[in-house]
Design a protein around this nucleic acid. Structure first.
Lengths: 266, 266
DNA sequence: ATTTGTGAAAATATTCACAGCG
DNA sequence: CGCTGTGAATATTTTCACAAAT
């Protein structure tokens, strides 16, 4: 039977709650799907999409099953429909106004990220505490003083705050965002934010990612030192690579797309 | 009994493998511990450290228990010893040479991040494919052409590669890094990288984080629309905040520290 | 013939709760 | 008494494997 887009809204949500792990993967699927759509694919199987996203096909199917039953057995999923379904689920059909607080190096880089606007997000305001920065025009927006947060939030209906200030100032900025009514915060400052229940904080932390890599690199080196050791399970090979999942490389690269998208985001 | 630093290396690793979830949290503990050390604390209890890091105290104790038994019952943990223990575990006692590929907006921001060097990482080289950028001096380093990757990696013993190029170029850069012998990659490009087994890739993706926030914001709004609904469990409050974990705010802010650390990393 | 959707099994991760030590 | 360390209980996530659908 044909499935129409209007089937999307009312159906689904068997028990009502989407697993966190699933929510975290939906954006990944969405990106691959957009690329597929651009390259003209109309349908995709769980196996293909799994290859493209680096996720196991069973996991992918289970993820999608939480949104409902929209695949066609023997065929796969309609690309456009999946895009619509995931976008709707994530709330990406509207454009969320974002306030960016802290216009330093990273703030500049983020403000200049074109793809920001492209899907679901719009930088509504830039703010900073430094009088030297306030008033500066960055990417067409005049930087306003962080004291004006309450007005700015109301004015632009800001629902997401991005913090790119030094860690010493981050908590204060978070408090102000919360006081102004913002309930979703993306924190780039390397510190833990304390917020009341009901406020969602996500953290992006370069140092932590590097330190996790460091751990694995360290393990590798330690393992290489002890080649006598019984590295039976999940062992680290001394100096050559295991040539296992090479079939993955088969449909690795997407058909060329000319867009020179900026590096951050998607 | 006194515990000495030399106890650290030989002991521990009951079964041999540290849970991924634990590894991912160790850097968070480490940061809080550094702050505690700077403020002069000599010991810390699991409860305090839990407050500071936003992790449950039982989870924290279980995490630390994977590294061995280094606490003192009735007292807590020695801050300096925990720092040493976690640093050693993560392999942060040496300085890892990092190659940064892609000197655009974000690349510049990362190259300029002083705290990079501060703990365990050192930018050894900057590379780019754009002839206009190659030769430019950024933060004291001359940008080299990405074709020179093999030489650069050998020259500086690069063990970690950071990718900040547009997504269309990211896979190619990853392939070159791997070919040059790099086994740990931090990818800022919004795409999935395919690498052979044995290569560790971590991804930092602004758009994904925003989209996850979008989902929660969306849920919140949907929930607010249906106030008649039985929002019993994990319900979203319509317009005011639940004032629950307020005690957390008690020891929220660290004693003032003058360092004006840059925003990224730590 | 192929691929979805999903129970059931296995693996991971978190939380509880308390014995045991200082 | 206070706090660690940890088995046992619970929750979450992943993986398996196959019946059902087209």
């Amino acid at each position: 039977m044909e499935k129409t887009l209007s089937d999307l809204q009312p159906t689904v949500r068997p028990d009502g709650r989407l697993p966190d792990a699933t929510v975290a993967r939906l954006p990944v699927y969405l990106r691959a799907l957009h690329t597929l759509a651009e390259s003209g694919s109309e349908t995709v199987s769980s196996e293909e999409l799994a290859q493209l996203t680096g996720v196991g096909s069973a996991k992918l199917r289970k993820d999608l099953s939480h949104l409902g039953s929209f695949g066609t057995r023997g065929v796969g999923y309609e690309v456009r429909m999946l895009i619509e379904l995931i976008s709707t689920t994530l709330g990406l059909n509207r454009s969320w106004p974002v306030a960016l607080v802290g216009i330093g190096n990273l703030g500049h880089a983020l403000a200049g990220y074109a793809g920001f606007a492209s899907r679901g997000f719009r930088i509504a305001a830039l703010l900073d505490a430094d009088p030297a920065t306030v008033g500066e025009v960055v990417e067409g927006l005049t930087v306003r003083h962080v004291d004006e947060l309450p007005e700015v939030v109301t004015e632009h209906q800001v629902s997401i705050g991005v913090i790119t200030v030094p860690p010493t100032a981050a908590q204060q900025v978070a408090d102000r965002l919360v006081a102004a009514g913002v309930r979703s915060i993306l924190n780039f400052a390397p510190c833990v934010l304390q917020v009341p229940d009901g406020v969602e904080v996500r953290k992006v932390d370069l140092a932590i990612e590097l330190q996790i890599l460091s751990f694995h690199e360290h393990r590798r080196l330690e393992a290489a030192k002890q080649p006598a050791d019984n590295q039976s399970k999940n062992g680290v090979l001394p100096s050559s690579l295991k040539p296992s999942n090479l079939k993955r490389r088969a449909l690795r690269r997407f058909p060329g797309k000319g867009v020179n998208e900026e590096v951050i985001g998607g």
